[in-house]
Amino acid sequence: MLLIRCPYCEMDRPELEFRYGGEAHVARPVNPMAESDESWAEFLYMRTNPKGLHAERWRHTSGCGRFFNAIRHTVTDRFVVTYKAGEPRPEVKP
């Protein structure tokens, strides 16, 4: 079971308290009706799925309840850094 640092609680908490929320920094278009079918499909369905560092959303569901973002390495499963929702993706080395 992983330990995940909640950037709001500022604590390492057990994975059981969290839910995964998919890739981070996929912003919902401000005016969806202005999007083309292609760009909307891109927003809905296309994700990067990298081997390596991945920015993703997590929610401290059974904790403070907040969504936040994490950079996790998809090969080692290690959380490199977690940060609050709305903050820019930090530069981190693999």
Partner: peptide
């Protein structure tokens, strides 16, 4: 509730 919280926290804060 999770769906609502998701939009409220991350899209419509």
């Amino acid at each position: 509730l999770a769906h609502m919280e998701d939009y409220l926290q991350t899209e419509f804060p």
